[in-house]
Design a protein around this nucleic acid. Structure first.
Lengths: 224, 224
DNA sequence: ACCTGAACACCGTTCAAGT
DNA sequence: ACCTGAACACCGTTCAAGT
């Protein structure tokens, strides 16, 4: 008899692959879809098995955040002015987080909880110190910049790929109907802009203007 | 016999007071504490009673957002340059949301779902149009500005008043220990700034620099 | 119009036990 | 060291029924 391979017994679980699986679920179906039980079935295991690898659900999210930070390719120092180096770092973070619009929200509060997060933080804080900002300002501005990149990614108009195309069209029609039914005397400017709350004419323009805004903000305030 | 008042039968429920109650719970214990069942017991009613007043939990959150937007006191147009008027509007939003650091996150996606939200949006979009921005840019920048104010409020260092003082001190000690145990060769700048991720030297300075940053960002980019 | 009762299909988590 | 079984205390929501 030829050896007909039985379906391999599950490979051993481990933090990294579990976190990767959770990230995949979140990317395709949203963060709410990531449940201990779902992740367990996906890995052919009882829910309680996960508690060997993660203390609780929050620790699982730490793992997800770490994976996203690991995808940030920080640029080598290039001897440019500090605000140019800062821009490059922000672009690198943006590039990584754009892949995870449904999950990016978990990243900011967890930046100090993994090596790749710490590396990013050290880099940005260092650049801000070079720009003349105090330790307090650097901490505050650095935090704000990271949250802002997340905002750009998570609130990009019309990018909620969570639902199937039909349901998405349906939702879009609903919102459009609501916006277009507004009183034009009362909300003239809102009506002019209405379609751009639902639709992004150019992702590249949107994101590059976002980065421009952030760099302008940083360079526009007084270091103290 | 003197009429000893029986505890009044519950007053009739209504959207507004339910939303107010939910907001109060969220302010003191965080958004996760707002559950249909908790809100029901708080109002001496079965969980299902709430479904008469709100289609689902999301609609309850719409109500919470509306209440917060209603607290924004938009300044009268004062004939100042558009960016000064914009600053005043941002300050007004900040003032309102500062009262709700644990809840402010629900506001941005719901700005178009209530009259006070729409009034704020119309105001900000109008000012951005006056500043020369296109309808598309105005929509994107306006959204970003609102999210940024929320970021300032929700990520203010050391302001998580959710737990009792002892538990909060405990959590703080844990984080501080972690930060101070970092390798000083590897994370020198991070270590310099570490205490300012946990503690805000001055709320007023923090928020006014935040507003300065945003105004600098807006005035620093090219209207197209 | 407004609310209840019973039921369903989910959650995260603990704890003791198995291999 | 790694995983299971059973149980607990929660969720949001539906649907039919009561007043």
């Amino acid at each position: 008899m030829a050896t007909v391979r039985e379906p391999k017994h599950r490979e051993r679980l481990n933090r990294e692959s579990l976190a990767a699986c959770a990230l995949q679920i979140a990317d395709s179906e949203g963060l709410e879809a990531v449940t201990i039980r779902r992740l367990a079935t996906e890995n052919a295991v009882t829910p309680m098995a996960l508690y060997w690898h993660f203390a609780d659900k929050d620790a699982l999210f730490d793992g997800i955040a770490e994976r996203m930070y690991a995808e940030v390719n920080l640029p080598e120092p290039a001897g440019l002015p500090w605000h140019e180096e800062l821009r490059a770092a922000l672009v690198a973070v943006l590039a990584a987080l754009r892949a995870h619009p449904l999950v990016a929200d978990v990243a900011p509060p967890r930046i100090m909880k993994s090596e790749p997060g710490l590396a990013l933080a050290e880099c940005v804080i260092g650049l801000l110190r070079t720009g003349g900002f105090s330790p307090a300002q650097a901490a505050q501005i650095g935090t704000f910049l990271l949250c802002s990149i997340v905002t750009l990614v998570t609130r990009e108009p019309g990018q909620d790929q969570r639902l199937d195309p039909e349901a998405q069209d349906e939702a879009l029609r609903g919102k459009r109907a609501q916006l277009e039914s507004m009183n034009p005397k009362k909300y003239p400017n809102l009506l002019d802009s209405s379609e751009f709350f639902l639709f992004c004419p150019s992702e590249d323009v949107y994101f590059s203007q976002g980065i421009d805004f952030l760099v302008a903000g940083v360079t526009g305030i007084q270091p103290r």
